[in-house]
Amino acid sequence: MIVKRDKLTFWERLYLPALVGGFQVTWRHFSRTLFRGKAVTMEYPEQKWVVPPGYRGAPYLVKDQEDRTKCVSCQLCEFVCPPKAIRITPPGPTGAPGSGNVEKGPKEFEINMLRCIFCGFCQEVCPEEAIFLMKDYSLTGTNRQEMIYNKEKLLSLGGIHQDKIQKWKHKADEAKAQDVFPVPPAK
C-alpha cells in the first residue's frame, strides 16, 4: 500500500508551535501533580488499592456465625480447580467429631497460592458456601512452602460468614422436633 504523504505547510515546517504545544501539556500535568496534589499513580505499597466489589482475590475458607468450619470436605473444589491448587485430606471413618449432624469435615485443606489462578470456580461450585474469593491480591512469601496455605491459615484469613440459610442447623432443629436426635455416634 502506498501511503500518500501531504506536503507540510510553512507553519508546520517551523516546528516551534508543535514544541510549544507539547510543553504546554507536560506543564499542565506537572503543575497538577505538584501544586494541586492530583497524582494519577499511587504510592504503593504505602498506599493500597481498594478493589471494586466482585474482585476475585485469594480464596479463603470461612466459619459460620456459630464458629463451625463450613467446609464438609466434599472435594468438589479440588475436582473443579483448573490448576489443581487445592488439596483436601478427607477425615476418614471418624468424620468430624463433635459437629453434630454435619458428619464430615476436612482433616486438612491446602491451597497452593502459587498455583491458584483466581478463577473463582471453587466458590461457584461449593455447595456449602464455605470458600470465598476475598479481596487479598498481593500474596507474598519467602519460599514456596510458605505459599501453600493450610486449613488453619485459610480459616483465620477467611473469618466469619453470616450464613442466612444455616442448612445444617435447620435440619438438626427439624429432627429434634421429631425426637430423632441426638444421633447415636458410629462405633
Binding site: N101, Q178, V183
Partner: peptide, 11 residues
C-alpha cells in the same frame, strides 16, 4: 412440610 427424620449413622 418438614421432612420425616430417621436415624442416621446407624451401626
Amino acid at each position: 412440610e418438614p421432612k420425616v427424620h430417621k436415624p442416621k449413622q446407624v451401626d
